[in-house]
Design a protein around this nucleic acid. Structure first.
Length: 270
DNA sequence: AAGCCAGTCAACCGCAGGGGT
DNA sequence: GACCCCTGCGGTTGACTGGCT
């Protein structure tokens, strides 16, 4: 036995809203607001609609303070970032975007961003990592280093206080060893060392420090020990194209695609 | 011109959870 | 604490549209 429907389906109209219905709902909301309940609103507004339908129509479409479509690159970046942390918490994600509805964000993700991410992931999994582009399309300027993008001053809230683990991120580790070997490096760590050495940095941590210094940042004591990412602290976050597992980058045989990680105090890859 | 197909997005459905009694 | 009502949320559906054959 399921839950009883919230309204008599035979007595209410369903499907697309007519301009007349929109006018009636808009007029009612502008004159009275929704001071009562959504359930009783339809009869008061003279609508043969379910209360839930009225609520949805108002919140997602008729409300004057919302925008439709035309998502900017910056909004896309924020959505990617928040989705990587929160999953499909669309209302939470939408709340971080000015004048966007959860339904709009969800549709945008399902119709555009998800496909773009899948395409990027496919390209990423087949190309040698040192040549792969950022895992996500970004409006960021060209990074000082090939593997470490500059800080992005995005208004991304921190939602997780404890240490991060590999499981918190998409970790396309499978099949990555072969590309390294194909390029003449014995492992991911070797490839890292090769690449950083070629760029004049002794290690990934040094490269990160170089990048942060170039950005004029003083907050990043990032991996200052030269051995671990867990010491990273800054405000805002940054891209990590290479992440080491374990106490030393030399032992890094794991790899993560470039994601924007908003950091509160620590990023600990365990 | 007609049919097919993929993409988009408004709308629906059912569940979870909060608040009141 | 138990129950009921209502709201909010996320997954899904289906109508519509434009491009392609």
């Amino acid at each position: 036995m399921g839950r009883a429907p919230c309204c008599d389906r035979a007595a209410v109209k369903r499907g697309p809203w007519s301009p007349e219905e929109d006018d009636a709902l808009r007029d009612y909301m502008q004159r009275h607001g929704n001071t009562g309940s959504w359930i009783t609103l339809p009869s008061k507004a003279g609508l043969k609609r379910c209360g839930k339908s009225c609520r949805l129509r108002w919140l997602n479409y008729l409300r004057p303070d919302i925008r439709h479509g035309g998502f900017t690159e910056e909004e896309d970046t924020i959505i990617y970032s928040l989705y990587s942390q929160l999953g499909s918490k669309w209302s939470l994600i939408a709340s971080q975007l000015e004048r966007r509805t959860d339904n709009d964000v969800k549709n945008h993700w399902n119709t555009k961003l998800k496909k773009r991410l899948a395409a990027a992931a496919a390209a990423f999994s087949t190309a040698p990592c040192r040549r792969s582009p950022s895992f996500m399309p970004l409006p960021a300027p060209a990074p000082a280093h090939a593997h470490l993008s500059p800080l992005l001053p995005l208004p991304v809230p921190t939602v997780k206080a404890e240490a991060y683990t590999y499981d918190d991120f998409l970790a396309p580790t499978a099949g990555l060893q072969d590309p390294f070997a194909a390029e003449g490096s014995s492992s991911a760590s070797a490839a890292l060392q090769d690449t950083f050495a070629a760029e004049g940095s002794s290690s990934a941590s040094a490269a990160l420090q170089d990048t942060l210094a170039a950005e004029g940042s003083t907050s990043a004591s990032a991996a200052s020990s030269g051995s671990n990412w867990s010491a990273v602290d800054n405000a805002g976050g940054f891209f990590v194209d290479f992440c080491a597992a374990g106490p030393d980058l030399a032992a890094a045989d794991q790899f993560l695609g470039g994601f924007y990680y908003p950091l509160d105090s620590t990023l600990s890859l365990v």
